[in-house]
Design a protein around this nucleic acid. Structure first.
Length: 1173
RNA sequence: GCCGCGGUGGUGGAACUGGUAUACACGCAGGACUUAAAAUCCUGUGGGGGCAACCCCAUGAGAGUUCGAUUCUCUCCCGCGGCACCA
């Protein structure tokens, strides 16, 4: 109450002009008036049929929350508004639109809590926002206002989704999602705060759920590359680059080692001749596989003699074998089995054609459709399925025709269901089938089996798969001493029958997958894992058998979900290997050489001599110090170094050198330090280049027993004991710095580049050369991205329904475009269902519909789209917001696109920007938009913190409400203050005092009316033109704060000394109007401005005022400012020098000396250099 | 840990391309007006020394390059933002 009263008191004072000597302006009297005028005259509607150059300025459209406009919004809108108004004055045709990104969770949560329908809440919030924005006098083109929750808008959001679907870029996949076990609801990543549910704080777990996905990864490469073509703030680009996370390396296959008879498979036939043939083939080509017949496995024999009853046979087999045996099943004659599920071949074809008639399609298209359909079936399978043994009933011939194929078959296999599959393979094999007119297993001829190698390869892969591994360091492959696979990796399930400790492995997997993300990152820093006993992989570089481990430090979602572990050169692998006692083999040696400037730098014309060298650190416990050498002829400070003689080991050489150079005799070898290292430098005393390669070692001094050291040794260096604490500083040779590092960190892991060693024929290559060569030799160069596909499903009510209908027969079918939009039904309950489905699932009337293909009962998709959907293309709709027939008319898009300047919060610079760039590129590929990139330039404004430096938040009670500020100080003050507070991109705390300062400035502007006279005085005129220049430049470069300061400087000057003509005064009003549009407009009207200041044009700078006839030269002595001298602008260097030297002050500074050197920078500075002053 | 950005008065910040460090604003101090307060106006305001002219020091710390460094290079410290076992 008290607060309110005092505030009112302040208001009263503000309003009473008689109480102040300076006249003050009254914003509340003028602002509303001009806002009305602008609206009535439609001055801010984007002109389309003009000759003017267009400029499209865009601010992120807000989410109309219940809290109303935030001062952070105002910061962005005012600044870009200043730019928009400036651009109009400059003569551009400006599009500066606004709308509402209104779908989203807060509104839905509010609805759940209060029972107010989201539609109604949204409308209320929008009305508030609109009113607030209008009260600020923002020059938006309100005729183009859009709302993402308007069916006329989201019709096109849905339409774009369907285009993505039709191009195979939208698909369904079962993936782990964040799940709140208390609320029983799936959570988006944004709703998970610190591993906990945003609403109730329950720790989030993972749960598999079928979700719609968008294949943004297909655009990863272009999203990255095209960043070169746009002008974004550097940090925004970096964020995008990091998010996409491209890394180059190699994919390498590690085969699983097999041994005879280790794998047993069930042969799904009892036909004796077939059993015999298969056994014979397997014995020859896959000896590790042995076959069990159903009879041997105690399973019933299924009679499949009648080929005409194919489907029935398949069904019977499936019933008899699948799920009843824990052996993998090898081949059947009939039907189409996918992981035990029997699929009716006729149905396959029908589904594949998706309601299109066979007659309308070319044979090739039919073939492709069927193949595509197989893909979707296979890819739909959850992870962990062994592979797919499909007896295809449809064959495609080389010319693409479909043939009768009941007795033929094909194998379609996949390594990993959700990963890319070499779909070329089955087709190619089929060609061969056609060529020979036979198919594999009925023919026993070995050649034919070989000729049909893809089959045998595929079979091998199914039964003894390889593990693909991605690495950025193929040069370290000889050091790969074990493999690690992610707990969810399918290979583990595939190898189920080989893994001896499968129980233990399963337990580990269960524990690992149950861990939430929180546990996996924050807590479980200590690496854990279990070896897959009974299976080994083959290192393709050296054919060594290496163990395979499962560990959760390897992530399924990156690369291939498996790694080759190189403990010697990767810290994570090193840590793991140390813990579990796995072998560590060094294959890259660090390579040290000297810079060209150094006196030990290599001399190219000298020969290089190789020398095996021992590097020893000797530690004395008693002294807590190390035995070192201080070199006489060189600036070297090292440990003990010495060449290794013929027949000597490193240790022997080290012991000998220690004795010879320091005399110490009793030493204990402790361990190697840092492995092999290479040093390449020039030796002055030998006049040759030396290539010293060798091993660092740690010894401990046992006792002081010592023999005398010969003069020959002491003349080169002195033996000294250096305290442990000083060693790091003291050592200065790269070789020993490296050894010391290894000692201190107690790690022999070296992750840098160097020279390849212990790698057979590759020894001696630099790691860079080796990366290329080894990648090709043992695998294939490959590129990986961190970017994942976009999870596009939300189980919420308040979002765009995904326009898909699920038909039991035809699968997912797109809603025909003429039936869009699929409108959100009106409901009373928004709570999610127990099953984690969207609340829409409960609305039977809406869910149940007809299949667009067969008209039989079908169900609507109940998931809705995420918030990001509507905002991924809104800038397109602004070009043509009311078009009922297309999302935007192409001509209008051609006219307005791309967005010239786009501003928004830093929080949207990764996801939103990436998503909308992705959609835009997709639309570009479809020929629907004119450019590959939507935004030419992107800026981000900094956050406005509360006055106390914390985030503004209701709970802290430190929120600043723009409405109060407008009421108390006027919209113009608020707008200018938000620009003046600091650099646009910086986070800055709010300061109401600062705002008051700006208000004083506006009062001064108002007051300066009385300075209007007949003529502008010279100084004022000059400053005015300089201000035109400065303000223009600063606006273009987003330096709003200094633009405002330039205006203040001018007004300060005018208030103190100046006189100004009426026309110059109104010229000032024009440059003021982007910042304080209301005040400028009012004064403009009062002082005879024609029309509106908002469209009055930008004053031209008279260049004459930017250059002075006389300039001031700064005089420095030794770089320090001592005096200044005014000379004519054309003055020559000699003249300036003469004048400078004649000055009393300078002569005093020089104290009689003559300058040794004089540096003159034209028109700026003259610097006199004297030896000592 | 990695990547990016930054560190300038009591405070927000300014300084073009290496050339007068601290513009503009807030705050503070003193003064004017006023019975008084507010408002407004004037003056001062990085630190130290000096009666003064003027001098010295200062852009996170330390080094380097340069006639001259807030600006460029290296090392370190601190803060912010992003990513986080990314193979």
């Amino acid at each position: 109450m008290l607060l309110k009263t005092s505030r009112r008191l302040i208001n009263c004072v503000v309003i009473m002009p008689q109480s102040s000597r300076r006249t003050r302006y009254q914003p509340e009297k003028i602002e509303r008036k001009w806002q009305k005028t602008w609206q009535e005259q439609a001055v801010f509607e984007a002109p389309e049929n003009t000759e003017q150059t267009k400029r499209y300025l865009l601010v992120e459209f807000p989410y109309p929350s219940g809290d109303g406009l935030h001062v952070g919004h105002v910061r962005s809108y005012s600044a870009i508004d200043a730019l928009a108004r400036y651009s109009r004055l400059k003569g551009f045709a400006v599009l500066y639109p606004i709308g509402w990104d209104a779908f989203g969770l807060p509104t839905e949560n509010y609805a759940i809590k209060t029972g107010v329908h989201p539609r109604q809440a949204t409308d209320t919030n929008i009305a508030t926002f609109r009113k607030q924005m209008k009260s600020l006098g923002l020059s938006f083109d309100w005729s183009r206002e859009i709302d993402t929750t308007d069916p006329n808008y989201y019709k096109w959001t849905q339409w774009i989704f369907l285009q993505l679907y039709k191009k195979g870029l939208a698909y369904q996949a079962t993936i782990p999602i964040n799940w709140c076990p208390k609320d029983k609801i799936g959570l988006a990543n944004e709703e998970v705060i610190g591993g906990k549910c945003e609403r109730c704080g329950t720790p989030v777990t993972r749960r598999l759920q079928k979700q719609w996905m968008l294949k943004i990864t297909a655009y990863a490469d272009r999203l990255l590359k095209d960043l070169d073509t746009v002008d974004y703030l550097k940090k925004i680009k970096t964020q995008q680059v990091n998010w996409i996370g491209r890394s180059e390396g190699a994919e390498i296959q590690f085969k699983i080692q097999n041994s005879k008879g280790r794998i047993k498979v069930l042969l799904a036939t009892s036909n004796p001749s077939k059993v015999e043939r298969v056994k014979k083939l397997l014995a020859k080509y896959l000896p590790e596989v042995s076959v069990v017949t159903p009879a041997e496995a105690g399973l019933p024999t299924v009679d499949v003699t009648e080929e005409s009853n194919l489907v029935e046979n398949a069904r019977r087999k499936a019933k008899a074998y699948f799920g009843k045996t824990d052996l993998p099943i090898l081949g059947t004659d009939t039907g189409l089995f996918i992981d035990g599920e029997m699929i009716d071949p006729a149905q396959v074809k029908r589904n594949a054609l998706r309601g299109r008639s066979e007659k309308d399609l070319a044979p090739k298209e039919i073939g492709q459709a069927i193949l595509d359909f197989y893909k979707t079936i296979v890819e739909r399978q959850p992870a962990g399925v062994a592979g797919y043994w499909i007896d295809a009933l449809v064959l495609i011939t080389p010319d693409g025709r479909e043939t009768q194929s009941q007795s033929r078959r094909d194998i379609i296999l996949t390594r990993k269901p959700h990963e890319k599959i070499d779909w070329h393979f089955p087709l190619r094999s089929l060609y061969r089938v056609k060529a020979t007119g036979r198919y594999p297993y009925d023919q026993t001829a070995a050649e034919e089996f070989i000729e049909l190698k893809p089959y045998s390869d595929a079979l091998c892969q199914l039964l003894s798969p390889a593990i693909p591994v991605f690495t950025t360091r193929p040069d370290t492959i000889f050091g790969a001493t074990y493999l690690v696979v992610a707990p969810e990796h399918e290979i583990i399930q595939n190898l189920k029958f080989k893994i001896q400790n499968f129980g233990e492995v399963e337990k580990y997997i269960e524990k690992a997958t149950k861990k939430s993300d929180l546990d996996r990152t924050d807590l479980a820093k200590e690496k854990t894992g279990v070896e897959l006993k009974g299976v080994k992989a083959i290192n393709p570089a050296n054919n060594e058998e290496i163990p395979i481990w499962v560990a959760d430090y390897v992530l399924l979602s990156y690369g291939t979900g498996a790694i080759m572990a190189v403990p010697a050169h990767d810290e994570r692998d090193y840590e793991f290997a140390k813990k579990y006692g796995l072998p560590i083999r060094q294959v890259v040696a660090p390579y040290f050489t000297k810079n060209a400037e150094d006196k030990d730098a290599l001399r190219p014309n000298k020969k290089t001599v190789k020398r095996k060298t021992a590097y020893a650190l000797v530690y004395s416990k008693k002294k807590n110090a190390f035995l070192c050498l201080d070199w006489e002829k060189y600036d070297w400070r090292s440990g003990i170094i010495g060449g290794v003689d013929e027949g000597e080991s490193y240790e022997e050489a080290a012991r000998r050198e220690i004795r010879e150079e320091t005399g110490y005799l009793n030493l204990k070898f402790v361990k190697n330090l840092g492995g092999e290292q290479h040093n390449h430098f020039f030796t002055t005393h030998k006049d040759e280049n030396r290539y010293a390669y060798g091993q660092g070692m740690l010894f401990e001094l046992v006792d002081e027993t010592r023999e005398p050291v010969s003069d020959e040794h002491t003349k080169h260096h002195t033996a000294v004991w250096i305290e442990k604490a000083k060693m790091g500083e003291w050592l200065n040779l790269a070789s020993f710095k490296y050894i010391w590092e290894a000692y201190v960190s107690d790690s022999n892991c070296y992750t840098g580049e160097g020279v390849v060693c212990n790698s057979g024929p590759y020894n001696g290559l630099s790691s860079n050369e080796a990366i290329g060569k080894m990648a090709k030799a043992f695998g294939a160069p490959a590129v990986q991205y961190k970017l994942r596909d976009w999870v596009f499903s939300r189980q919420h009510y308040w979002g765009e329904p995904i326009p898909i209908i699920h038909c039991p027969e035809h699968g997912p079918v797109p809603v025909p475009e003429d039936q869009l939009p699929v409108e959100l039904p009106y409901v009373k309950k928004y709570q999610p269902t127990d099953t984690g489905e969207s609340p829409l699932a409960g609305i039977k009337k809406w869910v149940n519909t007809k299949c667009p293909i067969c008209q039989k009962p079908a169900k609507r998709e109940t998931d809705t789209m995420p918030n990001w959907a509507g905002s991924s293309w809104y800038y397109l709709r602004f070009c043509d917001p009311h078009n009922p027939t297309v999302f935007a008319d192409r001509k209008k898009l051609d006219h307005w696109l791309p967005v010239d300047i786009y501003n928004g919060g830093m929080e949207h610079t990764t996801l939103h920007l990436l998503y909308s760039r992705f959609w835009h590129k997709f639309l570009y590929d479809q020929g629907l938009v004119p450019h590959p990139e939507p935004y030419r330039r992107r800026h981000s404004h900094g956050i406005v913190l509360a006055e106390d430096g914390r985030k503004m938040s209701k709970s802290f009670g430190n929120v600043i409400n723009p409405d109060d500020l407008v009421k108390q100080y006027g919209a113009d003050s608020l707008r200018i203050y938000e620009m003046f507070m600091g650099p646009f991109e910086d986070t800055i705390p709010w300061s109401t005092q600062g705002l008051i300062g700006v208000r004083r400035f506006l009062d001064k502007v108002w007051d300066s009316q009385k300075k209007i006279g007949k003529q502008t005085d010279a100084a004022t005129e000059k400053l005015l033109h300089q201000t035109f220049q400065k303000v223009s430049h600063d606006l273009e470069t987003f330096k709003f704060n200094t633009a405002v300061s330039a205006l203040m400087i001018f007004i300060n000057h005018l208030g103190q000394a100046g006189e100004i003509s009426s026309s110059d005064f109104t010229a000032f009003l024009r440059i003021l109007s982007p910042f304080a549009p209301h005040l400028a407009e009012e004064l403009w009207a009062q002082h005879g401005g024609k029309g509106l200041a908002a469209v009055a044009g930008w004053p031209t700078t008279d260049e004459r005022f930017l250059h002075d006839a006389e300039i001031e030269i700064i005089i420095q002595v030794n770089g320090k400012m001592r005096d200044r001298v005014t000379v004519s602008a054309e003055a020559s260097e000699d003249e300036v020098t003469k004048q400078t030297l004649s000055r009393e002050k300078i002569r005093k500074s020089l104290s009689g000396q003559q300058p040794k050197k004089i540096i003159y920078v034209k028109g700026k500075i003259i610097n006199l250099v004297v030896p000592n002053v």
